[in-house]
């Protein structure tokens, strides 16, 4: 029997993954692996994955067959920064949740983006804290009922991709998990055409257990719903306020190829100290 393209990037002995049946984290894994495959990456020896705490942080650790650092809640980006600065030859990818990267680790996200640090960060926006049983996250929709917003979420969700697009980050995109091909291509771009500086991909993928099933939907039904709900940012911009609220704006928010932090740092040092 033919083997799934993703398996060569996985530690087979620990499969199936620990995620709930239907969890969209696994779809992101497919897109990531297909991107690797299409880029001709045979193994992940020169890749380092860094994640924090949460369901999405389990994607690399222990499932992906690569070096991985499963760090503290919110601290994946600084650890990844340390790895990358200490050995710029390594490809460093951060994968984590919206709680992890945008709430408790939000400051690091902002500053790594500001520095244009040479990292690829993939954030799973599942709208909740999945691992701790579905509490509200900074990305939870207004009015949504969760264990910590039993009367409806009084806060409005954070548009993480737009915020990061407002920094010096080189590449920013948001895709729904239902947009497999553009998501996969975006990951490819962030590893090839745009291979330096800070690259951020937000993946809109509602938690199937604490969002989708609470809505009374199956993971498959929700996927089909997302296929309609997620539209290109250009279309979204031309919508009325009311219509916008019902849709998710997706696409590439920003794509530049400025020198990243490391190149800039080295340049200044070479200028000041001269080539030795």
């Amino acid at each position: 029997m033919a083997e799934h393209f993703g398996l060569k990037y996985l530690r087979k002995e620990v499969l199936p993954t620990a995620f709930c049946p239907g969890c969209y984290n696994g779809i992101l894994m497919n897109a990531l692996f297909q991107a690797f495959m299409e880029l001709g990456i045979e193994d992940l020896k020169r890749f380092v994955f860094v994640s924090g705490i949460g369901c999405s942080s389990w994607i690399p650790s222990p499932f992906i067959k690569a070096d991985s650092l499963h760090t503290l809640h919110g601290r994946a980006i600084p650890v990844a920064t340390g790895v990358k600065l200490a050995n710029p030859e390594l490809n460093v990818i951060v994968i984590g949740g919206d709680g992890d990267l945008a709430s408790i680790g939000g400051n690091h996200l902002l500053h790594a983006a500001r520095r244009n640090m040479d990292l690829l960060v993939i954030m799973i926006n599942n709208q909740v804290y999945g691992m701790t049983r579905g509490q509200a996250a900074p990305t939870t929709p207004h009015g949504m009922i969760t264990p910590t917003t039993p009367y409806g979420n009084p806060e409005r969700p954070m548009d993480v991709a737009s915020i990061i697009a407002g920094t010096n980050a080189n590449y920013v995109a948001r895709w729904c998990i239902s947009q497999y091909i553009p998501l996969k291509n975006s990951i490819k771009d962030a590893l090839s055409r745009y291979s330096r500086g800070f690259r951020f991909i937000e993946v809109y993928a509602p938690c199937v257990t604490y969002v989708v099933r609470r809505e009374g939907k199956t993971p498959g039904e929700k996927l089909k719903e997302l296929m309609k709900k997620c539209i290109r940012i250009e279309t979204w911009k031309n919508m009325s306020r009311e219509e916008r609220e019902k849709h998710v704006a997706t696409g590439v928010f920003k794509a530049e190829d400025k020198p990243g932090f490391i190149e800039t740092y080295n340049k200044y040092i070479a200028q000041a100290l001269g080539e030795k």
């Binding site: 029997m1 799934h4 499969l15 199936p16 993954t17 239907g22 779809i27 497919n30 897109a31 497999y180």
Partner: peptide, 29 residues
């Protein structure tokens, strides 16, 4: 303990099931 699907009809090779299966459990040949 899980239900498993099987192929009962004609497949057109679009591979959507393979992409969207979160558990790397499908191969379309």
């Amino acid at each position: 303990g899980y239900r498993n699907p099987e192929q009962v009809g004609e497949c057109i090779g679009c591979r959507q099931c393979m992409w969207y299966c979160p558990d790397q459990a499908i191969v379309v040949v």
